[in-house]
Design a protein around this nucleic acid. Structure first.
Lengths: 239, 239
DNA sequence: CGTAAGCTTGAATAAAATCAAGCTTTGTGG
DNA sequence: CCACAAAGCTTGATTTTATTCAAGCTTACG
């Protein structure tokens, strides 16, 4: 079983054997979380960093009136709180949307690796800046795209991200999330998500049956979503 | 004149004299941009990083139909493209919303500093993770807050961020942006921004006359906005 | 086989965008 | 110093979009 973090990073730059060994060492302790449980809670001060190995995790923010917003969806190979190495305190929850297997690494060990292997440290920094770039893409979609285009954009992004870590095949991937989760990612009501999803299906560009998404017309979906993958930094180059 | 980046970072951790000297060296070459001009364009591959010294800069994304969305507003002390050190290509513009003075530092020089002073390197990493945290706060506001609360949240955030770099006094600060800019940050139409602004003024919590914002009732505004400053990492501690 | 949880539908209501003016301020040139 | 653009701000009316409310339906699973 390949380390998804290695897949994520080696898509962006070449890794030395030394660096790969260091990454593998970071993913030794694994732990499971059942769907619906919180890995990290608002207010926590984590002392280790969590890397998703299997499953889907979400950053969930709760408002005073009980509303929930999901600001990011994390797939295998994503560090959900690498930045907790630097940050004070979590201002949101990280929740397992599906059953998850994660790797835990104590912060001092992460720090040691970044100091011993500065190039690898830069790549971990890169991973957090890609997170920020994804956040910006979500902001644009939330602020200025129609629900239909927004949903298409989301499905395009998920396809690319899952493909990178080997979890997509023939433009199909598993996405075991509910319409409630989707509503909290798109900033819409569940009813509207349901109707928008029907509109999207009606275009024939996507089928989403059970938990399997199949993109039937990638070019059409890309255009509908105005999806440009530049923000995901998919080119392999020295960083 | 104090270096705003030093103010930004030393609010979060103690800086050694060596580190302060290195930061000052990074801000030697300054350059001006008139309001409305682009510092960086989508598609650019910058070879130096830009730090805002004076003025306000925005990350602007343009959609096919001409719509604009602003995903971040940058104030003095903010690096607008520190990550371009790591990233491929800009996927958006950075525009001067007001007249700006910025500092330019060639990437190799930035990289050299981060390798020579790893702690300072971590603080620059921290700066980019704070950017990501602000993005998440904007996502939550866009997705699940009323326009009124969203606007209140924005004004709270601006107050704190400007205060840190010495640009706020007595809960007042200059914010020389148009309602068009504001609309593109909140994801609303200009007409609706105008009406929401009137509602906000009517609460008496804020006055915004000309380009001066004065918060009359900080606690009230904070509550309306559900503003929690944890995401800005204002505590000074070893990172 | 029964029961949640999640999905779907229709109708009513609320929120926001759009359209189309008019108004105000600011800066500029005669 | 005044006139006059141009940019930005404000307003009312209308249309579109999305939410809310209230059911009924479907599916997975113990």
């Amino acid at each position: 079983m390949t380390n998804p973090l290695v897949m994520f990073l080696s898509r962006r730059d070449d890794l030395s054997t030394d660096e790969i060994a260091a990454l593998d060492a970071l993913t030794l302790n694994s732990q499971d979380y059942a769907a619906g449980t919180a890995m990290i809670r608002q207010g926590d001060r984590p002392t280790s960093s969590i890397l998703v190995l299997e499953g889907l995790a979400a950053r969930a923010h709760y408002l005073a009136d009980g509303k929930r917003m999901i600001s990011a969806l994390h797939v295998p190979g994503d560090y959900v709180d690498l930045h907790s190495l630097l940050l004070d305190q979590m201002d949101h929850d990280v929740t397992a949307l599906t059953d998850c297997r994660v790797a835990l690494t104590a912060h001092p060990e992460v720090r040691r690796v970044t100091e011993r292997l500065p190039h690898l440290g830069r790549l971990l920094w890169l991973a957090t800046t890609i997170d920020a770039a994804m956040h910006r893409a979500w902001i644009v979609a939330l602020g200025r795209m129609s629900p239909l285009s927004h949903m298409a954009h989301f499905l395009c992004e998920m396809y690319i991200r899952l493909d990178i870590v080997g979890l997509a095949k023939d433009y199909s991937y598993r996405l075991a999330i509910t319409q409630i989760d989707l509503a909290d990612m798109l900033g819409l009501s569940v009813v509207h998500v349901n109707r928008t999803l029907q509109d999207l299906r009606a275009t024939g560009m996507v089928s989403w049956v059970g938990s399997t998404v199949s993109i039937k017309d990638w070019d059409g979906l890309r255009e509908l979503a105005q999806f440009e993958d530049a923000y995901l930094n998919l080119n392999k180059r020295a960083r």
